[in-house]
């Protein structure tokens, strides 16, 4: 029988993983639903941002917040540029998987070219260490990441639900022609979604650099589980992707603690399949 401490600690680490999946999945679920782009290049953006953070924080000595101020607008613009290309070539939903997968492969090669295929670790004192709550250790970096992920999901949810732009976006999804007849600028809104998605990739990338070891192949490390979180959460739903991310993260962590670490990757897809079987209208 495993101890309560181990269980608590793995629950905590599952929550952190879940929030991380949501942070990466937010941009993906938005572009999937609102742009009809299944954007695998989102992970390429995340890794580019991570390597840039590695360079700017680790080598140039900038504060991560300064890096955030630089990268967020840059990746907002990159997101728009990517969407402009996808628009220009009239890439449809299914083709978008192939096209953005290609972009991810090219990015992997480019990252290897600049930073080599070796593992790199950002050595910095930012968000290091942990505090203890009872018998549990709370790592500062993960906790900050989780908090920001929750804030991001909640902010996007509120924006979609309560702002004029959010309502216009949903109306455009229901009925683009009629929405346009009432003055909704569908095209500009789609660029806004692409930009926001890009900006979330920048934030995700900064935390990837601060919390993980970097390798170009990491582009594909979280693809499967984040894909599952986006689908399970209901496409386009920021709260859904957070909830699904937490479900996947926690169940993975518990599998690792209770059964064996090797079984953890099986969990997200088993859950995805089971839920799709019993609740097919979810997606």
């Amino acid at each position: 029988m495993i101890s309560a401490t181990l269980l608590g600690q793995s629950l905590l680490s599952g929550i952190f993983s879940g929030c991380f999946y949501a942070m990466l999945g937010l941009g993906m679920t938005l572009s999937w639903r609102y742009l009809k782009v299944i954007n695998l290049a989102h992970f390429a953006f995340v890794l580019i941002a991570a390597y840039l953070t590695y360079q700017l924080v680790g080598k140039s000595g900038l504060h991560p917040l300064v890096v955030a101020v630089l990268l967020i607008p840059l990746f907002f613009a990159l997101g728009i540029a990517q969407q402009a290309l996808i628009d220009y070539y009239k890439v449809n939903e299914f083709a978008s998987v192939i096209v953005t997968f290609g972009m991810a492969i090219i990015t992997e090669a480019a990252l290897q070219w600049f930073w080599s295929a070796d593992y790199l670790k950002l050595e910095s004192h930012y968000l290091r260490g942990s505090t203890q709550i009872g018998t549990l250790f709370l790592p500062i970096g993960e906790a900050v990441m989780a908090l920001i992920a929750v804030v991001m999901c909640a902010a996007v949810w509120a924006a979609l639900r309560y702002t004029w732009l959010g309502k216009a976006l949903r109306a455009g999804l229901d009925n683009p022609q009629i929405a346009a007849s009432f003055g909704v600028p569908n095209r500009q809104l789609s660029y806004l979604v692409a930009g926001v998605s890009g900006a979330t990739a920048a934030i995700g990338g900064i935390f990837v650099a601060l919390l993980f070891t970097l390798a170009p192949s990491q582009i594909f490390a979280w693809l499967g589980v984040v894909f599952a979180a986006a689908l399970l959460g209901g496409l386009g739903s920021p709260i859904g992707v957070l909830a699904a991310g937490l479900l996947l993260g926690v169940s993975e962590a518990l599998t690792m603690a209770v059964i064996a670490p090797a079984w953890a990757p099986v969990v997200p897809f088993t859950l995805l399949m089971v839920i799709l079987l019993i609740w097919p209208e979810r997606v």
Binding site: W164, K167, R170, A171, L173, D174, N175, A179
Partner: peptide, 12 residues
């Protein structure tokens, strides 16, 4: 806009 509320339709 069938997935939106009555008032949201009016807002658009």
């Amino acid at each position: 806009f069938t997935s939106m509320s009555v008032e949201e339709n009016l807002d658009i």
